[in-house]
Amino acid sequence: MRHLNPVYKIGLKQSARTKKTVVLLLVYNLLLSGLGLVVFYLTFDRAGRVREDVAYSGILTLYSVMAAMEFVMILFIVPASTAGAVAGEREKQTLDILLSTKITPFHIVTGKLAASISMVILLVISSMPVLSVVFCIGGVTVSALFVFLLLLVVTAVYIGSFGIFFSVCCRKTTGATVCAYLAMIIVVILLPGLLFFFECLEAFGSVGYIGIRNVMNTISGKRTLFLLFNPVISFVSMLRDQVGRGISIMNSIGSEGGLFYFLSRHWFAASMVSQLVVSAIMIALSAHRLNPTRKGWKSGRSG
């Protein structure tokens, strides 16, 4: 434990003491369990009574739905938990004191991010018993579950790095939280939305009508590289690899050959690496902005 980041250690201790953690764990697992039971009931019990047979492939639906729910929860929890990390220190007037010690801004940023992400990982691990319901029937392997865990961790780091960046830039937690959610919405919804919009325009221009299949099949490879930075697409590509339910977008990209073919075959890994690279850049930027002796540092007026 000697070399563990002290900011991370104390962050864990502080979050473990709050009632918020217990409530979050309870609500998260209740929601997940509830959803799991409903899907389980619909797939097996009800389906068995109505159709007098059970579609065992439905377990894959159960896995997909529960995984999607976990993924969406991560997207919603991480911006809130990271946005207050540094801004909260500023509000409590402890940031100056931290910065006056030997610890570097980089260690403060990574410690804070790791503490926030750890909470999320705790949520994910606590939900493992619920998620392991899928093993009752089969169809999903343990390695698939670990890949899913990896996706959650990378997504948490990726979205969290934006949260930390805004936490460093904004004076108040509220402002940082709003910015972090906006960034998440831009990355997750707006950018792919815009891409889809332009593809629609292009499809309309070339064939004279717009249809989802039409657009997806003719989507341009180069432009879709932006989707490497979209965690939702990463999630979908993971599901495609694991349960064979994916999107035709990969096929379209692959048809361009060369690097695009490689990316279409290894989209999940490529997107994980891309998102980690962006996270590293955001962390480095956050650490730079947190350095009080850098040029252009804006501090409150002192007497």
Partner: peptide, 27 residues
């Protein structure tokens, strides 16, 4: 350098010993 600003800057949710040990670990 040791610095005491004109405000407390303490972590209310820590014990006295934990607070000091945390800052010791920062060094």
């Amino acid at each position: 350098v040791g610095y005491v600003p004109d405000f407390f800057g303490v972590y209310d949710d820590l014990k006295v010993q934990e607070y000091l040990e945390f800052f010791a670990s920062l060094y």
